[in-house]
Design a protein around this nucleic acid. Structure first.
Lengths: 140, 140
DNA sequence: CCAATGTTTGGACTTTGTCTAATTTAATAC
DNA sequence: GTATTAAATTAGACAAAGTCCAAACATTGG
């Protein structure tokens, strides 16, 4: 995964490419996620975006992240019972979850694969398959 | 998975086997989960247990489920951002998650396997690896 | 019976996320 | 440009899941 240096203009283009009207708030939120290439919670994103001046409200952060997800610009990662993480990498890959620190770490696509395609219940389609490996420090 | 007909006495034994003092509330909560062999949320468990007479408080339900988890009597399944499911089956198996209904369905251990053992970050141990396949009705 | 330890409880509290109605901003037509 | 309409943002009230705490209750051993 090459480290691209994103600008806010890049974000505008990216949003347009996903049929999203690039408003100021949306650009800032996208920039927070993509410039870091990190797994962030809504909380963290809001803190980052409003760090210097107040740029967005809580409602907009949630609205926007849901919009991004619908347009497949980001992916939700659900590993922590108390908060959702947003992942700017929508390509196929899996995650380690550090249960102690709450940190999410990518697993390279080639390092882990799902073997076997189980028959889905009737009339159902698979929306995505993911592997989560929960890890923790050896000597607690 | 054979369908055993559990009694409350069985639960007491099961709890003792896991070094848990079998109190009335704990037996009822274990019975709710094991007699149904289902994936239930804390909410649902509380509703079941208190169906006829009030048997336990909310605090006890949460305390008890956490206790069960610590003693590896049940497993947490985290797929829904808004609630945790408790699974009485602690053996190796994976899940379908019906995004529309919120229903969890077991995938037989043999139908899906994780291929490859990625190197863990330094000083870390894997606590568990699970596959989640999100599914939804074909024609929405 | 008493003390000590373990368990349960109500209720206040926290956190994440949603909802709504009002306001602001942007876009379009004229 | 100005009016009209549509889209986006906002504050703040609200909801739901889960935690916390100090008080009450139960159980056990001596």
């Amino acid at each position: 995964m090459e480290k691209k240096h994103y600008t806010r203009d890049d974000m505008a283009g990216l949003l347009r490419a996903h049929d999203i009207n690039p408003t100021h708030q949306r650009i800032e939120i996208a920039y927070a996620l993509f410039s870091r290439q990190a797994h962030l919670s809504a909380d963290q994103i809001m803190a980052i975006v409003n760090d210097r001046h107040s740029e967005t409200s809580k409602a907009t952060v949630y609205n926007t992240l849901n919009l991004f997800r619908q347009h497949k610009l980001v992916r939700e990662v659900i590993v922590d019972p108390s908060k959702v993480f947003y992942d700017p990498n929508t390509g196929p890959h899996h995650h380690f979850y550090n249960m102690q620190s709450g940190e999410l770490i990518d697993i390279n696509e080639n390092d882990v694969q799902i073997l076997g395609t189980p028959t889905l219940p009737d009339g159902m389609v698979a929306e995505g398959a993911e592997v989560i490996i929960r890890i923790r420090p050896q000597n607690p």
